[in-house]
Design a protein around this nucleic acid. Sequence first.
RNA 1: GGGAGCGUAGCUCAAUUGGUUAGAGCACUGGACUGUCGAUCCAGAGGUUGCGGGUUCGAUCCCCGUCGCUCUCGCCA
Length: 597
Amino acid sequence: MKKRTHSCGALRKDHAGQTVTLAGWVNNYRDHGGVIFIDLRDRDGITQFVFNPEEKEAHELASKLRLEDVAQITGNVIERGVDDKGKSLVNKKLATGEVEVVATGLEILNKAETPPFVPNDAHKVSEEKRLQYRFIDLRQPRMQEILKTRHRVTKIMRDHYDSEGFYEIETPFLCKSTPEGARDFLVPSRLQPGSFYALPQSPQLFKQILMVSGMEKYFQIVRCFRDEDPRADRQAEFTQLDVEMSFVEVEDIITTHESLMRKIWKTVLDVDVPEIPRMAYDDAINNYGSDRPDLRFDMQLVDVTELASKTDFKVFTGAIEKGGIVKAIRVPGGAKLTRKQTDALAVWVKDFGAGGLPITKVVDGNVSTGIAKFIEPIGNKLVTLMGAEDGDLICFGVDAKPATVHRVLGELRVKLAHDLELIKEGDWKWVWIVDFPLVEYREEEGRFFSTHHPFTAPNDEDIDKLETDPGAIKSKAYDLVLNGSELGGGSIRVHDMNMQKRVFKMLGIDEEEAVEKFGFLLNALKFGAPPHGGIAFGLDRIVMHLCNTTNIRDVIAFPKTQTGADLMLDAPSPVEDAQLKELSIRKNLTTEKIIKE
RNA sequence: GGGAGCGUAGCUCAAUUGGUUAGAGCACUGGACUGUCGAUCCAGAGGUUGCGGGUUCGAUCCCCGUCGCUCUCGCCA
């Protein structure tokens, strides 16, 4: 095999006259009987080769080339001229289209079997086939571009933290199962029969320990595992950018990471990230119905409880009597939705706990259709309050539980914005959500649960409420939200053991349980823990935004399907009984039976 | 665990109300062709209609079950 002199995307007019050797995959071939054209592709581009019959040996070999064969071709670069009729032979679709290489030698490095699909067609092939033949799928320029972007992003991250004095430190994959949080992936211990490791859901405790160890600034680009059902933007196995810093307050973390985002967006997309605004959690919920508001469009939630209470509409008054609220969103141009479409929305919102979806349209400055006849008396005032115009649609969220109203309208405004195409392409709306509640009360369980995690520090002015009014405590937690998706989040941690004990007590975790679950952290806090805090970002999500995809599998080289399968490996798979025996594991017979049948 | 959609040639799809031998494009094989760039033209090969069962004179089509893929609710501190 000769040495490559150029990539398939490199040659330009200036190279004319040079003898070059390129290697790559056969992207296409056009055999005219006499002259043969071969388009050779590598990750850099495509170059056209011409085989003339005069080069007998090469020509004969070239006639055997088929799609996706791997070949190395040597020849002379010439500028493309004009054909007999004076028409230019330049191919404007190719970066290398002003030249071609007249082949003098060809070596077929590897014949390919007829592929199930070719990279050019991968975008129209089912995802199932793409995942099964991922090695071919990844040959398409789009996928190569994504993985290149992913590489560039992690490179920027490493450079950023390095320049700011961070150490990249690895933490174990074989960890300890913790009862709270997501379901753990378990790994049986051979040396300790009956015991299991858990794969980390995140390196949370390790990074705090590293602060106690005096590492001061830590980061890691690390795989995390959560055994929960996947979604379009969620995989059981995903990558976090994990960060922790000592002697810092909220501002330090925010500043450091705004700067990072600025570098990434500027380098990859040439987009400027402005100073990112902050929004209190309560405001996000009240005005957008979500703790990750999409600010690319308006449609804010407006509290219309007072107006609604003056109607005779039982749906409204009934909910209000039970302590509920009524909120509404104004959907610009929403009046064009058909009855069928709005009925479908009413069904759709039920998934989020709504009983239904009262709507009305705005015509001649007043309400019309839908529930108009019930709310006629407040029609004008409502239209004014909502700032609605003719042609708008007003959707109501009503429930005895305010949280349900917020959830329903929060989801609805996002759906409508997409359906009605109210989102400007290429718009970036960033926001930090701050002042999260430290805990939320879960009625089913009858106790408080951490909003973030149990190590999050309460706001200084709220510390007194730990024993009296936990639900009212705000915390030093923050999420970075981009276009309605949570890119990452973190908090300043509790670094004082007595404070940590008070938090555990408030959460109903007694001393014994605390020691059992988090003993090593409590122990570490005793021996000189500095004030510290950190943040973690979803690397996959960041790359998804940069590559303009909503499918997390697009940004992972070897992703899994919705049932956790790797279609290329055919994993997971049964194992030999001997392997299980060694691990002191026995299959559940019922399960085995189901698998066999 | 629930809801929705999809599954037909190697790939992407079609097939009338349930009715003849399940078709087309690309890919593949053979042939023709010296300027194409989605080459063109001629010919050919290629099917367990995901799998199992049922209804029917007859099933790609209807019914039940099952498997796979996607979206989604639950879940994801």
